[in-house]
């Protein structure tokens, strides 16, 4: 792992390297170097399997983190590659030509986070949410609770009491 890291550092400038378990590490890379890094890992370093592409919304930093998790089935090691893109310019280069199932991930991310992958096949087709007209729902600013309250009706007749508040009403209503 160490040797691999050195190679990646010099060639692609990866940073924030973290070894999580003996067989799993994560590192970050600049958005522009990502595709070349992934291509290199697949072609040269034996990371032949794309396990997943996942997005984490760091709304407080104004960033999306896209994680590409690759696996080397011979050496039985994982490497997770993080790249951060701005929430204002949510676009990422597509890797659909590297793996056949990459477009599925990219299509889902497009729908759930609104991140575009230009050129990825069927990326604009709806994946799960046919007829969805709200903001992409996996973004953190999408409030599930509010959506559910606006969309569905609550069952009538339910009322709850906070024990401390209720005890105050019952036992010392005049104070405060």
């Amino acid at each position: 792992m160490e040797a691999l890291l050195d190679r990646l550092k010099t060639r692609f400038g990866v940073f924030d390297f973290e070894q999580k378990k003996t067989y799993q590490s994560f590192c970050s890379v600049d958005k522009l170097s990502l595709v070349s890094l992934v291509t290199y890992l697949k072609a040269t370093e034996g990371f032949k399997v794309l396990v997943l592409i996942s997005v984490v919304d760091w709304i407080e930093d104004g960033k999306f983190q896209i994680t590409y998790l690759l696996n080397n089935p011979e050496l039985k090691t994982d490497i997770g590659i993080r790249t951060f893109i701005s929430r204002d310019n949510e676009e990422m280069e597509s890797i659909h030509d590297l793996w056949e199932h990459a477009p599925t991930f990219q299509r889902e991310i497009r729908e759930m986070y609104g991140i575009n992958f230009p050129g990825s096949p069927r990326v604009d087709e709806s994946f799960l949410l046919e007829g969805w007209d709200d903001i992409p729902p996996m973004r953190r600013e999408f409030d599930t609770k509010k959506y559910s309250e606006d969309t569905f009706f609550p069952r009538p007749g339910r009322k709850t009491n906070d024990p401390a508040e209720y005890m105050k009403q019952k036992l010392y209503p005049d104070e405060k």
Partner: peptide, 19 residues
């Protein structure tokens, strides 16, 4: 799924909210 509701015959007192 759970609501805390007052129940007849259960008094609110020290150490028991009556709910």
């Amino acid at each position: 799924a759970i609501d805390m509701i007052p129940v007849e015959g259960i008094e609110t007192k020290d150490g028991d909210s009556g709910l």
